[in-house]
Amino acid sequence: MAHRDDLIVNDAYALHAQHGEEEGKKVRSKIWKVTALLSIVTFIEVMMGVFIKQTSEAWHYAKWTFIALTILKAGYIVMVFMHLGEEKKNLRRFILYIYYVLIIYLVAILTIEAVKQNHKLTELFF
């Protein structure tokens, strides 16, 4: 095989992630705890969706609870399942901060335009 100097020597980072039996047990127990949490949160969301009507007064709070619970679930998936919580701090920030800035920009500009364009939307797109 031709020599490639673009590769990290000896797969160092991939090997660095390996762990033994003892550590594995701890990791698995954490995985099951997060699984339980995600399942319970999903169950609560579904029950709220079924029982709280959109016409009721509680709906406003239910809506923001849904969004908060969704972000909580997303946080656990990204930080634990995708291991971003265990990556270096600069990698974590690099991924998350860029996303925060761009998504806030996107949502803000759409919200502002939604107000301005309100009555023209149907003709514009559909």
Binding site: D5, L7, I8, Y13, H16, E87, N90, L91, F94
Partner: peptide, 14 residues
């Protein structure tokens, strides 16, 4: 000279 990732992660993962 390279061969080191500033994020301590492999190129594929990045």
């Amino acid at each position: 000279a390279g061969k080191v990732s500033p994020f301590s992660a492999s190129y594929g993962k990045l």
